[in-house]
Design a protein around this nucleic acid. Sequence first.
DNA 1: AGTGCTACCTGGAAGC
DNA 2: TGCTTCCAGGTAGCAC
Length: 286
Amino acid sequence: MPELPEVEVVRRGLAAHAVGRTVAGVEVLHPRAVRRHTPGPADFAARLEGRTPTAALRRGKYMWLALDDGSMLLAHLGMSGQMLVQPQGKPDEKHLRVRLPLSDGNELRFVDQRTFGHLMVDVPGERADVPASVDHIALDPLDAEFVPEAFVRALRARDTEVKRALLDQSLISGVGNIYADEALWRSGLHGRRGTRGLTRAQATELLGHVRDVMTEALAVGGTTFDGLYVNVNGESGYFARGLNAYGREDRPCGRCASPIVRESFMNRSSFSCPSCQRPPRRSRTA
DNA sequence: AGTGCTACCTGGAAGC
DNA sequence: TGCTTCCAGGTAGCAC
């Protein structure tokens, strides 16, 4: 499940293996992969063919290739998306959705089992260097322009639950279910705590843990791609190690040994320590 | 305006 | 063994 660190690994791979090559062809094998490109697959292909990426950029979980005509190839990996650079002629992956042969003999492949991810050709939005479709996405905590104090202020001004806020990409981007649970565990906060009840110190500490957990995962994830194979695979690397809460139901908390509990939250699972992360005494909305 | 809920999708795991 | 059901979760769009 790609969150910010995994997407950053892929961005680096694209910077190394796609930038500077010209798109020699476009093959959309599954139309759903370009569903956000509203003019359709044929237009998608026409806008890409002959273009040359000049840079690989990212905000939160979105990444894009800046193209030599000022447009952008925007990609979101969704739940299961992968961007691969493979030699042309190598057998197709089972869930190959889009193929982009490049001028150097390799090809960019978008592989996505669950098809929550997508590609589109976009135009610049409010800022010339960010696609219009990414305008509504907040800066991520690893962005040089991210202002911690502004985030802390915005978080405390929200009237919602703290985990919900962490997952809100218009407040802070790049955080998904896994790193939200990990940052909350490190902070000793239950995800159902209200944002209004957080002190400035608590909010600042939480942000610090978000940054730390992402930075640590990036350091591990960075080892998963080598050579021409640019991989983002949620199962590899960071998944196996370093997680203190996510996916650890019934296993002992690393701080107090209480069994980690799983709760349903926003139609997904939340993992927390019942002792270190006390739930709010009453529902926020009660 | 801001918050919250749900559809979208596939295949491996778990249940019977 | 083979079938059915559950589960994973990021995001847009819509309901309230």
